[in-house]
Amino acid sequence: MAESLVILYGALPYLLRGSLVTIAVVAGAMMIGVVVGISLAVGQVYGGKWLRRMIAVYVWFFRGVPLLVLLFLFYFGLFSLLHINLSAFTVSVIVLGLISAAYQSQIFRGAIMSLPEGQLKAARALGMSDRKAIPLIILPQALRLSIPGWSNEYSIVLKDSAVAYALGVMEMMARAHFVASRTYEHLPLYFAAGVMFLILTYLGTKGLRILEEKVRIPGYSS
């Protein structure tokens, strides 16, 4: 027991550096997810019939295929077929981001649709074009409403990022496994990795709750 703790203590800096990789993967993926997700959501609510249909196919595909299969497909398949040489890290960020975009688009879509219709009508009555009204009137309200759903999505992406280990990305899980294979202290190390994921989940969701409070408009209940 004491010996395990010594090994665990020695491995901690190495694992913590892995947590930085995990954070980088999650941050990159969430960023792609927000940008693509918002575009998809706006397209799905305000777009024409064909655009809506195409977005629905995108969402269906990225929500229906397992992450691991998509990682293999993009890393070993599509990107090398197109002669694009990307590191395992970059591919993991892109794939996690594209999947998250599909889920996030549904969060944003729900938020946009929950706004009273009068908002867009009032903007139009004031002479705003839709192109102006959506980013200036609709999205500032919808994004505030999306934070709780977004916080859920963060904890899912965080946990999914451990699968990037399958491509050899040196994040927390991979490092825990490496140390475990060398020291045979499997159980304590995996447990430590799990606890570190728990801590990251806690910190992220806590931060988002603070953000939600911060950006709340006083007197504006939703």
Binding site: A162, F197, T201
Partner: peptide, 19 residues
């Protein structure tokens, strides 16, 4: 819910032999 599924699977498969 807090541990990633990969970590859980590794605990069951690679971790349990430890005990």
């Amino acid at each position: 819910r807090g541990f990633p599924l990969v970590v859980q699977l590794f605990i069951w498969y690679f971790g349990l032999p430890y005990i």
